[in-house]
Design a protein around this nucleic acid. Structure first.
Length: 207
DNA sequence: CAGCGGATGTGCT
DNA sequence: GCACATCCGCTGG
């Protein structure tokens, strides 16, 4: 008997879902299910509980702030593709491209609540247990085997990495806050309320 | 518990 | 050369 919790139909969020105003996409991603299918056939799944919006060249916290480069080119492209990059020499960060072609923006997935494949996630994390498994953007990528090799992956049509339609989190259960770790940005951009998380959820990275 | 510094590779944020 | 959308282990209270 399969004891996995993940039995919903294969129904990835659509291109149209991602091709909207980035803070709206970030907010509405809460509650949906990040799915990683491994070459071995194993499936890892986590419920998205924390996100951040990075929105256009006017946003000094956005990697595309200074324009198109080889790294940020993908943010200028079609919505629904994975933008994964390396930070601090050792951690991968998963973003999903948003908005329309020519407008660089993406949503950073900052935390998930593990639903399926927890044993493998623990192995990937060096047998870390409890909330530390996936309560941060670097942690969840390591747990779910998401690396820069997945940069450019189509999260709408592909079968390697996608977001499955789950249950929407009601507005009164969503906390809106400034983004974290962007001290290099201008004060007004640091202050923007573009971080979203589920109120009281154990797996959120920071209160 | 908090505060700090080191790890480590890439793009110029 | 240095900053970086982080994490972890160590220190002191």
């Amino acid at each position: 008997m399969d004891e996995s919790l993940f039995f919903v139909a294969f129904m990835p969020l659509s291109r149209e879902f991602y091709a909207r105003y980035t803070p709206t996409v970030a907010r509405e991603l809460l509650g949906h299910l990040l799915v990683r299918k491994l070459p071995t056939g194993e499936t890892l799944c986590g419920r998205i509980v924390e996100t951040e919006a990075y929105h256009g060249t006017e946003d000094s916290a956005c990697h595309a702030h200074l324009g198109r480069t080889s790294r940020t080119n993908i943010m200028f492209g079609e919505a629904g593709y994975a933008y994964v990059y390396l930070i601090y020499g050792m951690y991968d960060m998963l973003n999903i491209v948003t908005e329309t072609v020519g407008f660089p923006a993406a949503v950073l997935v900052r935390a998930v609540e593990p639903l399926e494949g927890m044993e493998l996630m623990q192995l990937n994390r060096g047998n870390v247990r409890g909330k530390n498994l996936t309560n941060g953007p670097g942690k969840l990528c390591r747990a779910m085997a998401i690396t820069r090799a997945l940069k450019g992956e189509d999260m709408v049509n592909g079968d390697v990495l996608w977001v499955e339609a789950g249950e929407t989190v009601p507005d009164d259960q969503i906390v809106t806050a400034p983004r974290v770790g962007i001290d290099y940005a201008t004060p007004e951009d640091v202050a923007r309320p573009w971080r979203f998380y589920e109120r009281g959820n154990l797996w959120v990275s920071k209160k």
